[in-house]
Write a protein that binds this DNA or RNA. Sequence first.
DNA 1: CTTTAAACTAAACGATAGTTTAGTTATTTA
DNA 2: TAAATAACTAAACTATCGTTTAGTTTAAAG
Lengths: 187, 187
Amino acid sequence: MARRKEYIEEEVIEKAMNLFWKNGYETTSMQMLEKEMGINKFSIYSSFGNKNGVFLESIKCYTKKLNRLLSKLKASANGIVGIKEYFYEFIEFTKETEFGKGCLVTNTANEIGEGADERIKKVLTEFTEEVKQVFANCLRQDASTNEETIEQQADFLLISMFGLSSATRIFTKKQLDNYIENIFKNS
Amino acid sequence: MARRKEYIEEEVIEKAMNLFWKNGYETTSMQMLEKEMGINKFSIYSSFGNKNGVFLESIKCYTKKLNRLLSKLKASANGIVGIKEYFYEFIEFTKETEFGKGCLVTNTANEIGEGADERIKKVLTEFTEEVKQVFANCLRQDASTNEETIEQQADFLLISMFGLSSATRIFTKKQLDNYIENIFKNS
DNA sequence: CTTTAAACTAAACGATAGTTTAGTTATTTA
DNA sequence: TAAATAACTAAACTATCGTTTAGTTTAAAG
C-alpha cells in the first residue's frame, strides 16, 4: 500500500561486499558503506538490520560468486587436475577487482575473533567445509585411494588455499604460479 | 634531573603485543591497551608516540620472539629437515599463549591495506624476506640444486607458512601435522 | 481522489575512538 | 635543601563510531 524501494538489495550488497573485501570488516564504517552503496543509513538499517547484517549478506554474496568457480569444479571429472585448474582460476578471481585483497572468506577468517557474530562464523565454516568436500570428491575420481588418505589430502589442499589467499595479497603472479606448481608437483 | 619511569618499556610492550596478537590492530583500542599495559595513556603516548607506534614496537617485540626459533634454524645444518622441524616448532609457538590466534606477522599482513603505516609494512616485508633467506640457506645445505630452484622452493615454503599461520587459528593439531607432513612428503 | 503506510531525507543520539592538556607528584642534581 | 624537570593522574578534547528518530515524500489500494 505504499512506496517502493528505489534500490535493489542484491545490487547495493555487491557494492558493500567490494568495500568489505577491500578494507576488511573493522576498517569499513557505516559512512563509507552509505557512500559506496549509494543509499541512506536508514535504508541500510531497514534492509539489513545493522552493520553485521550488511557484512553477513556481503559474505553470502561473495560465496555465491566463488560458487560459480566451484560449480565448474564440481562438474569436472578431471580429478586432482581439476583442482589445480581451480587454484589457477582462484588467483585470477582474486584479481577480478583492481585491488589485490585476497579472498574475503579467508580475510574474514583471519580477522574475526571468538566474539564474532555466530551467523558469520557459521557461513565461513560451512563454506570452508563445502570446498573441502568438493576437493574430496575430485580426489575420489583418481586412482583408488582409501578414505583416510582422501580426507588428509583434502585438508592439505584446503589449508593450501588459505596460504594462496594470503599470498595473493603480497606475492607476484610468478610466485603464485610457482606455489601452485609445487603443490601439485607429484600429480 | 627528574623522576624516573615506573615501568619498563619492553615489559609493557610485551603486554601490548599479546593484546594485538589476540584481537588484531583495529579491534584493540587505546583503552584496552591502557588497562592491559597497566600504565596511563599519557605514558603510552610519551613512550611510543601514538597507537601506530605501540603497534610497531609490538610487532618488533613479536619478531624478536620468533627470531629465537629462527636462530635455531639458522644454526642447524639439517637442510630441509631442519625447516620441517621449524614448522612443527612454529605451531607450538602459536599455542604458547592460551588463545589460538595464529601468527601476529601473518595476521597483520592479512589485516592491513595500502594506506597502512609505512614503518609497519617495512617491518613485515623485511621479516618475511629474512625468513625466506633462512629457508634458502637451509635448502643449499642439501643435494646440489641450482639457485633458481632454491629460490622457488623457498618461496613455496614461505607461502606454506602463511597457510600454516592461518590454519593454526582454525584447524586441529592433527590437521596441522598432516599439512606439514604433506608439504615435506618428498624430502 | 483520498487514505495509508512504506521509503525517503537529514539530523541527532549516546558511546567510544585516538589524542592532548592542565595540574600534581616525585626525584635527581647542583 | 632547593630548584628544576620528567613522569604521573585525571579530565577534557574533537572526531567519528554504529544506531535511531522525527518529519517528508511517494505511490499503491480502497
